[in-house]
Design a protein around this nucleic acid. Sequence first.
DNA 1: CGGCATCCAACTAGATACTG
DNA 2: CAGTATCTAGTTGGATGCCG
Lengths: 143, 143
Amino acid sequence: MDVEEGTLNSPTDPGLTACDMDIYQWDAREGCEVRQILDRIADKWSLLVISLLGRRRLRFMELLREIDGVSQRMLTTTLRHLERDGLIARTVHPVVPPRVDYELTDLGCTLLDTIQTLVRWTEDNQLKIAAARARYDATATVG
Amino acid sequence: MDVEEGTLNSPTDPGLTACDMDIYQWDAREGCEVRQILDRIADKWSLLVISLLGRRRLRFMELLREIDGVSQRMLTTTLRHLERDGLIARTVHPVVPPRVDYELTDLGCTLLDTIQTLVRWTEDNQLKIAAARARYDATATVG
DNA sequence: CGGCATCCAACTAGATACTG
DNA sequence: CAGTATCTAGTTGGATGCCG
């Protein structure tokens, strides 16, 4: 298992000037913690997991079934990451066969709201995007 | 692998409440267009590009410099995708040396708002997440 | 400067087999 | 059921070189 070490950037990174700090309240620097967190939560499977758990508590197999295309391995990895970040809670019931529930933490719930905003935007604009793509592809083909 | 659909997917399912509908409107199916769009805009580089362009119009090289860690190849790819989706506009100035500007379209601007919500959430909660990680890692190390 | 093509290394993720 | 371990195919992405 690869619980990647939290080798974050040093806050005193000499590469950052005062000007940079000003502009990049959250910045585009590689080591930037905000950016690293964004990479994680804006992840393909994370979004789906959080959205599904926002509806109700789910078991591992339920998630695996509901998220079309995810492998057991990727689901496990995603769940561990989200758990590590304190966004979901993992509850193991000591029964046979094993039963593990996943649910959003309070922190996870606040993220859910934000994610749903993103989802809603996508829903609201998918036609525009589809149209833009058609337009783009048409021009590219002609050119 | 087609998991039995019907109850989960159908918007007209009589068993679904209005609240459920809200959630199931975009689903977790592989071919779902919403999911595919989400994968694209929730992309690592796309988020950064849109955020930076939200501030002002930028040239290719400016983007390349500001986004730490992105390669020319990936930046080009990302910009093409965003342009295809109608989120950014690409303007070629017929001068020597060539000059190409990128800026958000109206559609891109609406997405910017949404993304900034996500960014703000991350900024607001990065300490909590860092704490959660420390807690998780401590437990994992002990165990 | 902007950007495409090629090559290749590194990482990702699926399939499979196995465990408690 | 809920994972872990291993192996491998596929993809991503960096480096380089060339072109308009």
